[in-house]
């Protein structure tokens, strides 16, 4: 498995392989090809950051540029999904959720339940999230918590090229609506990815590092921040177990609890805002179900409860980094010492 490709290429490959396998798969979104109706090139952009580049020509008629009407085309994708197709719609930035939320919140997510189990809505909504590109408050947010809160949705947040491909293939094959969150800063990340088709199941967290002292639970880009902190801490004799959730809905409760039962300490790292978040949810889960195993308080390393700032001086403070994770880990370790 020596071939290395980027996170972005892995997503493109997953789309191409699934579109080849299943002709009910199609792509719709703003500038997913680019150039519709314009005098220049077709497939001029292939997505605003080029993730879907090339698919327009490989799959004629199945890569559809949409007008700037998030409510309209996301809703159309939902409608098409109820009719036996497998749309992959692209919401350029997750911040634009405000423009289309009804079709996800009230339509796609609720059809199956409201209709007594008779509807199947195999929709994938790919969307970019995350701070770090100086893109300011309306192009940088992380809304994983919002999606995770909504029953009926599945929420995927891959951290590596391998997971991006396997989880996207799973998302496309899945018969429930899936929100597939891609961090802009991960697109260039290289990693080993099999050329063959494979799917990574939902609800199965990935152990990226074994350790006995502290459990670091995280997902998405923060996985790399957690690993950096864990490597630094290892040199100081603190062994962190790093757990990448991969999906926040379904949530792999068993793996989180299994690890905390072993280490007795938990630090949750989440790029999202802290109120009612994945971080608080996991903290509550562990406090409820693994309280006896805890040797110290649970720590959360998250963004502050603010919008994402523009200035680099502020944005760098906003994003959780390895130093903050290391400080949190030391805090939970020290808490044990003072109690002992």
């Amino acid at each position: 498995m020596a071939r290395k490709i980027s996170y972005q290429q892995a997503i493109n490959e997953a789309l191409a392989q699934e579109m080849r396998r299943d002709e009910s798969v199609f792509i719709i979104g703003e500038d997913v090809a680019g150039g519709a109706g314009a005098p220049g090139e077709d497939d001029a952009w292939g997505g605003v950051l080029g993730v879907t580049k090339g698919l327009y020509h490989q799959f004629p008629g199945r890569v559809l540029d949409a007008p700037l009407s998030e409510l309209g085309y996301v809703g159309a994708a939902v409608g098409a999904a109820t009719q036996g197709l497998r749309p992959v719609c692209e919401l350029m930035f997750v911040d634009f959720a405000g423009c289309c939320l009804d079709q996800i919140l009230n339509q796609a997510a609720k059809f199956r339940y409201m209709f007594g189990g008779k509807a199947v809505t195999p929709l994938v909504m790919r969307t970019m999230y995350g701070a770090g590109l100086r893109a300011a408050a309306q192009h940088s947010q992380m809304l994983t918590s919002l999606w995770t809160h909504i029953p009926g949705l599945k929420v995927v947040c891959p951290s590596s090229p391998y997971d991006a491909k396997g989880l996207l293939i799973q998302a496309i094959r899945d018969n429930d609506p899936v929100i597939f969150c891609e961090h802009k800063l991960l697109y260039s990340l290289q990693g080993e990815v099999p050329e063959e088709v494979y799917s990574v199941p939902f609800g199965e967290a990935n152990y990226l590092r074994d350790g006995d002292d502290v459990t670091l639970v995280t997902y998405g880009r923060m996985v790399h921040v957690a690993l950096e902190a864990a490597n630094n801490l290892a040199r100081q004799g603190i062994d962190c177990e790093v757990l990448d959730l991969r999906t926040t809905s379904p949530l792999d409760e068993d793996s989180i609890l299994e690890s905390v039962e072993k280490t007795g300490r938990l630090v949750v790292i989440d790029e999202a805002n802290p109120r009612c978040s994945v971080a608080t949810d996991i903290s509550a889960l562990v406090a409820q179900k693994a309280f006896a195993a805890l040797k110290g308080p649970i720590e959360m390393v998250t963004a502050p409860h603010t919008p994402v700032p523009f200035s680099d001086a502020l944005e760098d403070l906003y994003i959780p980094d390895a130093a903050k994770v290391e400080a949190a880990v030391r805090k939970v370790i020290d808490a044990k010492r003072s109690a002992a």
């Binding site: 809703g75 159309a76 098409a80 109820t82 339509q107």
Partner: peptide, 22 residues
């Protein structure tokens, strides 16, 4: 589906129509 959200059916049928086309 009947729909409790006023206007929500319009994008849905656009999608159903698109599905028929595809």
């Amino acid at each position: 589906g009947a729909n409790g959200i006023v206007g929500a059916g319009a994008p849905l049928v656009a999608g159903a129509a698109l599905a028929a086309r595809l």
